[in-house]
């Protein structure tokens, strides 16, 4: 897997500068969990930003701290003293001093045993809970890894041209990435950001070939984080665009409902 390409794509810089989209942020966090070299690069960049900021250090006015802390409430540190009330029962114990030593020891031993079993039981439960949590997390990570592997392959494939479809006036925040394999004209698509659709509508990808729109396939309703394989390109593509159509798609695009586009 060529993580170098990914590092060079500039997405990590976007991430540390805070200019990455929500989708890109998730992607970077996921990638850095999986690939140590990405994590290392990210930490180094974070470090750079830290240095950059500390260059501008300026001590805030002295009165500010008090003003800020006056608005905060804190939890008391659980001090050792809080466990002491249990000891207060001591006077009662002194009244039953006649009880033979062995019985005290027996009681102490059984109490200890009871405490131990409770603690063992609790920790066993905790362990199985934790195991279950780890298992779900692992499944999640595996699923994410499969997806990021696929994404990395798209980034790493030198035959792929990355076309970023930018939001139109209708939806300036929107952004979609199209990976166009120039060799075999296959097209993959990843939604960075598009408004949610209702059940009656679906997004549809189009290419403009010789001035005419050509249907490139539908985008699933739960498009978040999904890599879509679209139809194969034929002809001379001048642009990509996505419109919102009725569920299942339309034979020709509704131009007023164009959300993102990019000229090629």
């Amino acid at each position: 897997m060529n993580t170098n390409e990914y590092i060079k794509s500039g997405i990590l810089e976007d991430y540390v500068l805070g200019t990455a989209s929500e989708q890109e942020r998730k992607e970077v966090e996921c990638m850095s969990k999986i690939y140590p070299e990405i994590k290392t690069e990210l930490s180094a960049l974070e470090q750079s930003i830290g240095q950059y900021i500390s260059f501008y250090q300026k001590t805030p006015p002295a009165h500010l701290k008090e003003k800020i802390f006056a608005q905060m409430t804190f939890d008391e540190t659980p001090a050792v003293e809080t466990e002491l009330p249990g000891v207060e029962t001591e006077p009662e114990i002194s009244t039953i001093k006649v009880v033979p030593m062995w019985s005290k020891l027996a009681i102490a031993a059984s109490l200890l045993l009871a405490a131990l079993s409770v603690s063992l039981y609790v920790s066993k439960n905790k362990v199985s809970e934790e195991m279950a949590a780890v298992k779900t997390e692992l499944e999640g990570i595996n699923a994410q890894k499969a997806q990021t592997d696929q994404l990395l392959a798209l980034y790493g494939n030198s035959q792929n041209e990355l076309v970023t479809l930018k939001g139109t006036e209708k939806s300036p925040e929107s952004e979609v990435k199209v990976f166009w394999n120039k060799q075999n004209n296959e097209v993959a698509l990843l939604v960075d950001k598009l408004p949610k659709t209702d059940a009656a509508h679906q997004y549809q990808l189009w290419t403009i070939v010789d001035g005419k729109p050509v249907d490139m396939g539908m985008i699933d309703a739960d498009f978040d984080g999904k890599i879509h394989t679209m139809k194969t390109i034929s002809g001379n593509v001048a642009a990509f665009a996505i419109t919102l159509e009725k569920a299942g798609g339309s034979p020709s695009p509704t131009l007023e409902e164009m959300y993102v586009m990019a000229a090629v």
């Binding site: 500390s54 250090q57 300026k58 805030p60 701290k65 802390f69 905060m72």
Partner: peptide, 20 residues
């Protein structure tokens, strides 16, 4: 754990960078 000492430390050590 929301301990005051920790936030004191945080403020004393990082406020200049943040305020800058």
């Amino acid at each position: 754990r929301n301990e005051r000492a920790a936030f004191d430390y945080l403020y004393d050590n990082y406020s200049a960078a943040l305020y800058g």
